[in-house]
Nucleic acid binder design. Structure first.
Ligand code: NAD
Ligand code: NAD
Lengths: 223, 223
DNA sequence: TTTGCAATGTTATTTACTTAACAAAAATAT
DNA sequence: ATATTTTTGTTAAGTAAATAACATTGCAAA
């Protein structure tokens, strides 16, 4: 299999697409299919077949001519590349509306990723099991992160608390953060950070919708 | 001001960043500041000052040397570019955990974007006001979209219902869709589509965290 | 003054990503 | 058998985005 450097050389976009391919492939598998063509994957993902084949080339997977790719094999290979050997444990900080939606969405899914704890400051939540996972007070973060070997934190606290919460996560030894609050946070170099805000997405859609209306004609699809 | 073609030539990434700049600038304004330097904006957004200046150059905004950019002016200019003249109305389809989180997050915010309706099939939700917005049955989508002049739909139904719901939205005449279900949907060319799935984000973070651990050293930050 | 500095604004270069072009192979049709 | 089609795999070309380089400006300090 590919060595570390080769894996790190994979384009970031390819990593994202591999995750998406796998999700689509798992659905196909459920439908009882065994093989799939690049153009079928492409259709699902709104990209070109060439891109699919190129991604698969980069990870060194070969299909069979005129038969396509073996879905099971491909799923497994993607797993070998993007998943860790052992489970990676995840915590949600801020078990509010969004936090609970994420927990619910995740729970009961396959993956090498598991949400194993929530953190909150609301006494009514602390000590309870929420959507199947235990909720702790933030003062226990250090201990729980260590004991449960939590590597990634998902930030869904109110924006005003984003900075302090991210500091706590970093201090507790977390290695990756996904920040869903609209407040950009800062983390040290050794912590991997992704930020996402729905408003940006919506404003972008609104912009292209506006432009399409002004032109009275179509614009090509999303990013 | 810039004409349509010039606006459409702006890089997609610049459009996204303009939205983000504005959000950050609004916070600065609340802090009572009047001016800001490119390197300050850059710090907040985890990008380089050059990129900020380049984006602002592209939209034709000039700061004052040694004083930076006028926050108020810049916010207004960004608004002129990415916002529409009139309000753009938005609907949420699937008023569950995620849908409610989004509504709550949006409600009471500035913007030219407003979530004005929710759609669901659960009889307990239909007819109610949820987080301040009225919830309708999906059978009324055509009518409500027309009456309320809704342009954008946010899809937060269960994955199994994503396809049918997106079709309904398109049939009702919607012009943009943000799909938060893990099921990729298809829309005609004249509908602008953005899809987002948290699992992809988390798996990407997990991948780079894993790689960092294997290397025993740092990787550079997110995308 | 005039020199240095800290900032902006713009062009040039580089890097990252996507798409196009095409060769090769296997199945199918002639 | 031979040609045609369909699909993969790979290299080459093209686009888009980010970064670097640098010219410019006006203030501040000497
Ligand atoms: N990125 C997006 O698309 C998106 C969408 C919706 C909401 N949001 C953001 O996500 C965040 C959560 O939204 P929500 O609707 O779930 O809000 P919410 O108020 O329902 O939940 C926030 C939770 O955080 C807890 N909390 C408060 N301070 C805390 C702290 N210091 N440490 C730990 N927990 C703390 C609260 O007790 C509450 O349970 C907000 O910042 C919101 O702006 C983002
Ligand atoms: N993108 C993400 O990051 C993310 C995160 C969490 C959840 N999700 C996804 O978002 C979706 C919603 O998640 P949730 O936790 O809010 O689920 P949920 O079950 O709480 O909510 C779904 C809602 O949709 C309604 N519904 C069902 N069928 C419908 C239909 N045909 N038309 C209109 N409404 C219908 C249900 O009555 C319910 O109110 C799911 O697809 C989930 O996988 C995505």
């Amino acid at each position: 299999m590919k060595d570390h450097q080769e894996l790190l050389n994979l384009p970031h976009k390819t990593i994202e697409r591999l995750s998406q391919y796998r999700r689509a492939l798992l659905l196909c598998l459920e439908d009882g299919r065994t093989h799939i063509f690049s153009h079928e994957i492409a259709k699902i993902q709104h990209i070109t077949p060439v891109q699919v084949r190129r991604d698969l080339m980069l990870i060194g997977y070969s299909g069979t001519l005129r038969k396509g790719y073996n879905i099971r094999e491909l799923i497994d290979l993607i797993g070998e590349i993007i998943d860790s050997e052992e489970m990676i444990n995840v915590a949600v900080v801020g078990v509010g509306n969004l936090g609970r939606a994420l927990i619910k969405y995740f729970n009961g899914k396959r993956h090498k990723l598991y949400i194993v704890a929530g953190f909150d400051i609301n006494p009514e939540k602390i000590g309870k099991i929420i959507n199947g996972i235990p909720c702790f007070g933030t003062e226990d973060m250090d201990r729980v992160v260590r004991e449960k070997n939590i590597k990634i934190g998902i930030l869904t606290v109110p924006a005003a608390n984003a900075i302090e919460s991210s500091k706590r996560l970093v201090d507790a030894g977390i290695k990756g953060i996904v920040n869903y609050t609209p407040k950009p946070i800062e983390v040290p170099d050794n912590v991997y950070l992704e930020e996402y805000d729905m408003v940006t997405t919506l404003e972008k859609v609104a912009f292209y919708v506006k432009m399409a209306e002004l032109k009275g004609e179509k614009v090509e699809g999303g990013n």
